[in-house]
């Protein structure tokens, strides 16, 4: 059974790896081997699960997911990255997705915050106000 200390360690490690970027990934394997040495299989699994969860969360915080009805030009994407990277130490990674259901406009996700400027969302708000 992973203790809360193990869980904290997994989170801290995930944060360090994401912050360090490629260098962090290179140093991850020996670090994990050192931490997991002498632990039971169950504890290793729990630790890695916590680490994975925390890493995904940290990566999402550094990733700008842009959804739009049609693919956006690189200029628009770079403008978005510049705008959302304001006040951050490192520029954000950008992932583009197309979703025709948005009709027009776009939906941007950064971490667990979603900015929805799609036509589909505006129409839904209109429908809610009439209902």
């Amino acid at each position: 059974m992973a203790t809360s200390q193990d869980s904290k360690l997994a989170k801290r490690l995930a944060l360090l790896v994401v912050e360090a970027g490629e260098q962090g990934v290179a140093e991850l394997k020996p670090a994990l081997e050192k931490i997991l040495a002498g632990r039971s299989a169950k504890d290793r699994k729990a630790f890695l699960k916590d680490f994975h969860k925390a890493a995904v969360r940290e990566i999402q915080k550094e990733t700008l997911t842009v959804e739009s009805a049609q693919s956006l030009s690189p200029e628009v994407l770079s403008q978005l990255v510049i705008k959302f990277s304001e006040g951050r130490e490192r520029p954000l990674q950008v992932v583009q997705k197309t979703n025709p259901e948005l009709i027009a406009g776009m939906k941007v996700r950064l971490g667990d915050t979603v900015y929805d400027a799609s036509l589909a969302n505006n129409l839904q708000n209109l429908a809610n106000s009439i209902r």
Partner: peptide, 15 residues
């Protein structure tokens, strides 16, 4: 309602 509609950006916290 359509006339009064101001298209805008909604910000939500999701999970």
């Amino acid at each position: 309602e359509i006339t009064a509609l101001k298209p805008g950006v909604s910000k939500t916290n999701t999970g």
